[in-house]
């Protein structure tokens, strides 16, 4: 049983060691940002990858986490840790609400994707308009370094914090995948009618999935806030984050526990490389994203991890024959 957690331990250990090998601020910034995306993508992956309910509006959860945390700190002077916990809870609650409305109405596939997008857009427009969010000016978190304030002088410390959240998310997802709930969620993805015939309460399973999914992505929103100390509606509820988390999960290997983390590193690694080689052209990294996505969809539906596993098993299968030759 513990064996299934070994890959998580290995990859988390590897990332934890990065600050010892690399000290450049740019590199550490890169890793922190990727970890935040990876955490958000883990949320997407649970609902979209494992459960087969493709959301195009995870910004709704990311933004709610970030805004709730920011508002509680800026307007009510609440402790950052408690504010973050509240942000995660509210993100989960919003997810449950959106899930209740859309799943109960029987929305699936592209209809579900469009409705989630619509919810996120409505929240974006609201956040831009109401005073409590600071409107178009946004919200600035006061720079006040201290563990209690979830602000760190060293980038390495924040990296470890983000990594801790990612690791917790990975363990949670692994545990879910090995549980009854995980099996039922996969069954719902594969065939809802067959799942119902076997006693699976499809609506309840989807609601549970979107709630946990919302919590994970909201946590990413809270981390984003603590790292950049600034929010506005286009950051918090913008389509960019919905796309980021979806892409990371798809590229890494949807439905696989480590998929989002691998995908986030692959995407942003490639994006940054392209920027370095063709930095002059604005938006070139986005073009790279698009290319990667097309390649994945066309040639590696299981994502990078799926591709690696396939190559590995093929090599393992080819080895005995090669030995004889």
């Amino acid at each position: 049983m513990m064996r299934t957690y070994l890959p998580i331990l290995a990859i988390v250990g590897l990332i934890a060691a990065i600050p010892f090998a690399v000290t450049s601020n740019t590199a550490l910034n890169f890793v922190v940002f990727v970890l935040i995306i990876a955490l958000g993508a883990q949320g997407w992956n649970l609902l979209g990858g494992v459960g087969g309910q493709f959301s195009f509006g995870h910004a709704a959860f990311f933004g709610t986490g970030a805004y709730v945390s920011a508002i509680l700190q800026v307007r009510y002077g609440l402790n950052a840790w408690i504010a973050m916990a509240a942000g995660i809870l509210l993100g989960a609650a919003v997810a449950w609400g959106i899930g209740f409305l859309s799943f109960r109405a029987g929305l699936r596939g592209s209809y579900f994707a469009l409705v989630t997008l619509a919810f996120a857009e409505v929240l974006r427009i609201l956040a831009n308009a109401v005073p409590i969010t600071g409107g178009a000016a946004g919200l600035l978190l006061k720079l006040d370094i201290g563990v209690l304030n979830l602000q760190f002088a060293s980038r390495a410390a924040f990296l470890w914090l983000a990594l801790g959240c990612v690791a917790a998310g990975l363990v949670l997802c692994r545990w879910i995948m090995d549980s009854r709930f995980g099996a039922q969620l996969v069954a719902v993805r594969e065939n809802e009618d067959a799942a119902r015939a076997l006693g699976v309460d499809v609506l309840a399973v989807k609601l549970k999935a979107i709630t946990v999914s919302g919590a994970l992505t909201a946590a990413a929103g809270c981390l984003y806030l603590q790292y950049f100390l600034y929010l506005d509606a286009n950051i918090a509820y913008g389509v960019w984050i919905s796309i980021e988390v979806l892409l990371a999960a798809m590229v890494g290997g949807r439905g696989l526990v480590l998929g989002p983390l691998v995908g986030a590193f692959t995407l942003h690694g490639l994006g940054d490389l392209t920027k370095q080689f063709a930095g002059g052209i604005p938006g070139i990294d986005l073009a790279a994203y698009g290319t990667v996505l097309i390649l994945v969809v066309a040639f590696a539906p299981g994502g990078v991890l799926g591709l690696l596993t396939r190559l590995w098993t093929r090599r393992a299968a080819a080895q005995p024959a090669g030995g004889r030759a």
């Binding site: 099996a183 594969e190 067959a194 006693g199």
Partner: peptide, 19 residues
Amino acid sequence: VQPFAGLNVRENIAVGAYL
């Protein structure tokens, strides 16, 4: 027939057994 096409035989049957 409505198999969970992406799963193996054991996992398919296990969904029923989880009830």
